[in-house]
Design a protein around this nucleic acid. Sequence first.
DNA 1: AGATCGGATTGATCCTGATCAAACCTACGC
DNA 2: GCGTAGGTTTGATCAGGATCAATCCGATCT
Lengths: 238, 238
Amino acid sequence: MNHIAHAEIDRTPPKHDAAWTIGIAARPSQDAPVAGAREAHFAARETLCEEGARADHIVIIAQGAVMLSKLLPDGRRQIIELLGAGDVFGLSNTALYDTTAESLTPVRAFQYERRVYENSPELQRTVSQKMTSQLCAMHDHAMLLGRKTAAERVASFLMGLIPNRGGHGCNGPDAKADTRHVAIPMTRQEIADYLGLTLETVSRAFSQLKKDGILQAPRHDEIVVTNVCRLCHLTGTL
Amino acid sequence: MNHIAHAEIDRTPPKHDAAWTIGIAARPSQDAPVAGAREAHFAARETLCEEGARADHIVIIAQGAVMLSKLLPDGRRQIIELLGAGDVFGLSNTALYDTTAESLTPVRAFQYERRVYENSPELQRTVSQKMTSQLCAMHDHAMLLGRKTAAERVASFLMGLIPNRGGHGCNGPDAKADTRHVAIPMTRQEIADYLGLTLETVSRAFSQLKKDGILQAPRHDEIVVTNVCRLCHLTGTL
DNA sequence: AGATCGGATTGATCCTGATCAAACCTACGC
DNA sequence: GCGTAGGTTTGATCAGGATCAATCCGATCT
């Protein structure tokens, strides 16, 4: 098996504008690829690289969403990071990938061989900036996993999906309607594995938010947040 | 208050060789400072920078241990990362520090103004490598926080403190005596805040490990692991 | 030595979220 | 249409860790 598999482009037309985005990365990255890039396309739900495999490429996502996960020997899974356009993965200080990467949506990405990366200051500079962001995001996520309640975790997760919010801040300049449509290209199990909960707990939290009139769910992979402010207060982050 | 306070060097002689180290970073970093460095010294338990303050410096630790933490508005704290010699902090994608940094031991460090950092490819290269390691460490910690039991968290924490183990791998080349002395320059509350537990739970886990004959505790800030293999198996990581 | 103070340990009880167990949708295939 | 299969929701019960509450221990000070 090749670690970075080549795949057909999934040409299924997206049903909603926001369908293939995660969080802040609402739009395809503008960044032109640095020299040495190989463009690759993946369908949704492909494994782009596997924990423990030889880490010979780094990948910059141009479009789409990717999740990084790790497994414990007994099968417990933690989804470590959700990545969107502009984000990087495949970096490792060892010879092996430390996480598995799977596409949540169709993905367009640029791959670079590790040697290319190590010899391109320009690429390193780009990657370095992204890593800084991702490190900060991991800091926030550590807070979520270590100290937030189930309800706060789910609220934080949903806030993170609302574009132009960065997950926080209640009254942005675009708070006009106080209503947001969000596509969630993840199963309840995946959300649970991301938030350190069980799928039942996630489901119950969603139900509670519906009952409280904070969101509606026309489909289970799509929600409408009808009260962003209330939701934001539930994150525990203020 | 200046965000990176200057401080007297704490000249208290360390009681044990390993007393001022965290995990892998058992020795002072060999790296010579890059141009533009300002050397700084801190005593134990100083605040080196504060969450929310203007992020005008990045810091590379030459010697000693530092913890990064975040607070929720209601006072819940999560200790995000433990840093040792060679590690970097103060990077942020915003204008503000996203975490508070406090010294756990006396610390010697090199500070760089943000402008210096942004104009030094050499420094960026150094920092970039370190960030890769720290990102991987955060991945492991996310797994710990999201999916491990209390006992596994404490075992993982202790394994991470044993030098030349990197936290994992049971039979390294140096497993001669299968016994390790570890200094823990943290209170139970701090360990709890790092592991996403309460101090009582941490205390109980330590007591259990003592009862099981896996470790001894001559002092509460110092332990002797008498069975590294057993401890390693308890981490859940294999 | 005795008093004091911060941190650690231990015990009893409570509660959040996990686990076990049915239904219940929704999309697909025949 | 009916049947099947994933994934989801909901309910009942359980348990791991949190919380509340005493001690306990070891430093430091007088």
